Amino acid sequence: MKIKSYKTMVKEYYEELWNKHNKEYIDILFDDEIEFHGSLNIQTKGKKEFEEYMDKVITGIPNLYHGIEVMIEEDSKIAVRAVYNGTHKGKLFEFEATNNRIKYNGASFFKFKDNKIVDIWVLGDLATLYKQLQK
């Protein structure tokens, strides 16, 4: 039995976890063995590794906003086209802070099992992002 709709859970992933930095949602939304594959050449397994990745992104772009443009659900999977924007205020992986505004598009694919997110794949427009991270 589904407690929340998968679409509601994905909206909470973006709004509560990423946009509001409410890390309680890591336990609410994720399976213990959550696998995350990010477009910044990052792979994590488990809640702790995901939180460490999230901290690095928030350090680099503390006001990073994830906006949902399109969401499609099929069975236990959801695909999202999103737009990301914010200000590059801190080190983001190998890129030192530039104070540049960034805006780029991406797509995320979520897989669910037992009312938890078990897998996330993110594909971002890195060419556009990298241009904006240059001084």
Rank of each mutant, 00 (worst) to 15 (best):
D125T: 06
A97R: 10
G46T: 07
E94F: 07
K116C: 12
I68R: 01
I34F: 11
E51S: 10
L17F: 07
G67I: 01
N99H: 13
W18E: 09
Y84Q: 05
V70G: 00
G106I: 04
K56N: 11
E16Q: 15
Y53N: 14
V118A: 03
S108G: 12
G67L: 07
G46I: 08
G60N: 06
G46D: 08
V122F: 11
K11W: 06
Y53A: 12
H88S: 10
K47Q: 12
K116Y: 14
D32M: 02
K111D: 10
H21N: 15
R81C: 03
Q132W: 12
N41C: 02
A79M: 11
I102D: 01
I58N: 07
Y13W: 13
G60A: 12
Q43R: 10
E12I: 00
F36K: 01
E15Q: 13
K89V: 03
K11M: 06
K116V: 10
F95M: 10
D27F: 13
E15S: 12
E74R: 09
L133H: 07
E94T: 05
E94V: 03
K131W: 06
N19T: 04
I72N: 03
N41D: 11
K47L: 09
N105Q: 15
E74N: 14
Q43H: 13
F36I: 10
K20Y: 10
S39M: 01
I72D: 02
V70T: 10
T98H: 12
A82N: 07
K11N: 14
I42F: 11
I102A: 02
V57K: 01
M71C: 08
T128I: 03
A79Y: 03
H21P: 00
K113D: 13
D125R: 03
I58L: 15
E74L: 04
E16P: 00
E74Y: 12
H66G: 00
Y25T: 05
K48H: 07
L126P: 00
L126G: 00
K77A: 11
T59C: 06
V70K: 01
N100C: 07
F109S: 04
Y25V: 05
Y104S: 07
